[in-house]
Nucleic acid binder design. Structure first.
Lengths: 188, 188
DNA sequence: GTCTATACGCAGATAGAC
DNA sequence: GTCTATCTGCGTATAGAC
């Protein structure tokens, strides 16, 4: 048995949204990729707004679980941050894709309030995680020239998201690397 | 006499694109705001692709002229960078708007190749300008903990663009300030 | 759960009068 | 240059059979 239809739809929608934005794909696109009729999608997600909520919720959960894993398997602040940077880089492929949070934030007006709330919650948790990692790195001495962890965290998230946008604009992952190289040097 | 129709259309389109993305407004929206019929817009911009090119070209010219002005009126690297940061902050309003480059990069797939080229050129010139400013700041001692100017420039552009995205996600300009505070401290 | 059929609106775009 | 009128396609969404 393959994965259930709902999961297949979420997978397809997430890939499309990260590549083309929430307005860049239609139920017709999902229908073709998943192999059902577009009307059937409404059984799982009555409206596209519902779909965007479910998509973003799943994304946030998955990503925050990933952050826990990084903590569990990396001892220093610098090591944790480097792994996270790698995850953001993986997300862009060859400059054709974005983290779902970045992809959806750009077209905020096409989203229902509930989806925006999930995005806000996700961002807040990411900043907390980053703040803890920068704080740890300052304590354990793994970060050069450490500054205030809270400020570093906010700057880091924007840098990661902006770098993804840069890679997309250039359609080249090297733009991401260029934007991150200065920070990576501080991480050792 | 008011401004000519073409300029009014570009103004309206730019505002809409920065607030809602290139797919977030229609010729009908422009028609209503400018006060002509939507069919008439096609006389000035036959297709929406043509409009996106003209819009981004004008934006790039205006912004790069602004950068020249900043050079002419600010002596140190840090001072120049601080003024530029202020311009990016002004662009977001109350978290409802983005720099046109950020707004369009997010939905790359909806743009013709020509517009993408203009975006690429604009980004390249911005990075050059930033690199020169960071290099100057290193020479004149106005930047704390200076690193390689080329790397700083790439990081700075991504940080500025990512911070705009953050402000939009939170619909709050404070998110921009939070992301920039660490850098601003280095600029004195 | 998935289908066929269909409604309804809006998008970008064109033709031709004035 | 701007208008009215119109075209065509695609978007989300619904009704009801199977």
């Amino acid at each position: 048995m393959g994965k259930d239809t709902r999961t297949a739809l979420l997978d397809s929608a997430e890939r499309a949204a990260r590549a083309k934005g929430i307005d860049g794909f239609s139920y017709a696109d999902l229908a073709e990729e998943v192999g059902i009729r577009k009307a059937s999608i409404h059984y799982h997600f009555p409206t596209k707004a519902d779909l965007s909520v479910a998509m973003m919720q799943r994304y946030a959960e998955t990503f925050l679980t990933l952050c826990k894993d990084i903590e569990a398997t990396n001892a220093t602040g610098a090591a944790r941050l480097l792994v996270l940077i790698g995850k953001y880089r993986d997300a862009i492929g060859n400059g054709r894709s974005l983290c779902l949070c970045v992809a959806l934030s750009g077209t905020r007006d096409s989203l229902p309030p509930e989806t925006i709330n999930v995005i806000r919650g996700f961002r807040a948790q990411m900043i907390d995680w980053l703040r803890d990692s920068f704080a740890l790195g300052r304590q354990d001495g793994s970060i050069h020239n450490p500054a205030d962890p809270r400020e570093e965290a906010a700057a880091c998230l924007s840098l990661l998201e902006g770098a993804q946008l840069a890679a997309r604009a250039e359609e080249n992952a090297a733009a991401f690397d260029g934007a991150l190289s200065a920070l990576k040097k501080r991480l050792g």
